[in-house]
């Protein structure tokens, strides 16, 4: 068990910047999720912690020790790969045993450790099969068992669920979270799926173009986004971002008129989450563009000018398209962003 510190980490691939001047403290036993679109540097960051990539600059500290010059195999870090990376020539038993053999764990303990790890992921019945004879979910669990068997200081997981179907993903998510709480191992988890990030993380790090956008608990990320990137990335559907003009305590845009703090002036962007909108109320005038019932909730898309605004309406809400509609906003849940995308916070 160990904490991890990244101090001003830089990674460049030629002229391409993978990670730019990143600093991050990961607490002992924490479940940290790196979230961002593809190419944002989240996997590169994880691979640098693992020792599979060498940082161009900065320092990586694991458990109080600078590990920049320590080889991947000596870092006591376990990783679960997107493609599982099981050894196809070995049975599942031998796959799980491999890290024990390589780390010179006494042979008389192997069997007990392997069976315990296999039980933890409910794989006991498949130990003598080869990876080729297992389903995707079973392979994923085998990869997890191989990672936990030697009780490493740090777990790294690189999109471990992205090759599974939606149903399996949900159940594996719970298993992974349960296992992490049980083992109390510091975990860094990379994903581009915000649901995974929100459900698993103690803290989420949102990255874009190699730069950290925001670090916070899932609640903070969701209800207190630092900029338009975070606001537009989190939530499904994500926050509505509407550009307009603010003057004298009123924000105006095509079809929209809402009060705003007097400190907000000039060209700004209004952010409002779909669930903070209600049908009827008069802050937004538009036309019904589409109604999508999903059972427990109905997604309503309203067109105003050239923009579409997403609203979560009541489950029984129905309306024909191209009829005029009025939408109200929860005024305590309005977010304003300046022209460069940064959040305008109320003076405390």
């Amino acid at each position: 068990m160990a904490s991890i510190q990244l101090n001003n980490i830089v990674k460049r691939f030629g002229s391409f910047v993978g990670v730019e001047n990143m600093s991050l403290d990961i607490a002992d036993e924490e479940f940290l999720v790196l979230l961002g679109p593809s190419g944002c540097g989240k996997t590169t960051t994880m691979r640098m912690i693992a020792g599979l990539e060498h940082p161009t600059g900065g320092q990586i500290v694991i458990g109080g020790e600078v590990v920049n010059e320590i080889d991947a195999r000596d870092r006591d870090v376990a990783m679960v790969f997107q493609g599982y990376a099981l050894y196809p020539n070995m049975s599942i038993y031998d796959n799980i045993r491999f890290p024990l053999r390589m780390r010179k764990v006494p042979a008389d303990q192997h069997d007990r450790l392997i069976r315990r790890a296999a039980e933890m992921v409910e794989l006991g019945a498949f130990l003598d099969r080869k990876p080729g004879a297992l389903s995707g979910g079973q392979r994923q669990r085998a990869a997890l068992a191989r990672a936990v068997v030697r009780e490493p200081q740090v777990f790294l997981m690189d999109e471990p669920l992205s090759n599974l179907d939606a149903k399996l993903r949900a159940s594996m998510r719970v298993q992974i979270k349960h296992m992490q709480r049980q083992l109390k191992v510091t975990t860094v988890y990379v994903t581009h799926d915000q649901i995974e990030a929100m459900t698993l993380a103690d803290r989420i790090v949102i990255m874009n173009r190699g730069i950290i956008q925001q670090v916070g608990t899932p609640d903070e990320i969701y209800s207190d986004p630092a900029n338009t990137f975070v606001a537009g990335f989190i939530g499904s559907p994500p926050m509505n971002l509407l550009a307009g003009e603010a003057r004298d305590g009123i924000f105006r845009s095509e079809g929209i008129e809402v009060p705003c703090p007097r400190t907000v002036t000039g060209s700004v962007t209004l952010g409002i989450r779909p669930e903070d909108c209600t049908v009827g109320g008069g802050h937004l005038q538009g036309m019904v563009y589409g109604v999508e019932p999903t059972g427990d909730i109905t997604y309503l898309t309203v067109q105003t000018g050239k923009r579409a605004v997403e609203i979560k309406a009541a489950r029984d809400f129905r309306a024909p398209i191209d009829t005029p509609i009025s939408i109200g906003f929860d005024l305590s849940r309005l977010y304003f962003f300046s022209e460069n995308g940064e959040r305008i916070r109320r003076p405390a």
Partner: peptide, 15 residues
């Protein structure tokens, strides 16, 4: 051969 497998083996402590 699959690069990921090589990397997995590195992290498992294999020379």
């Amino acid at each position: 051969q699959d690069q990921e497998i090589e990397e997995a083996a590195r992290l498992d402590g294999a020379s």
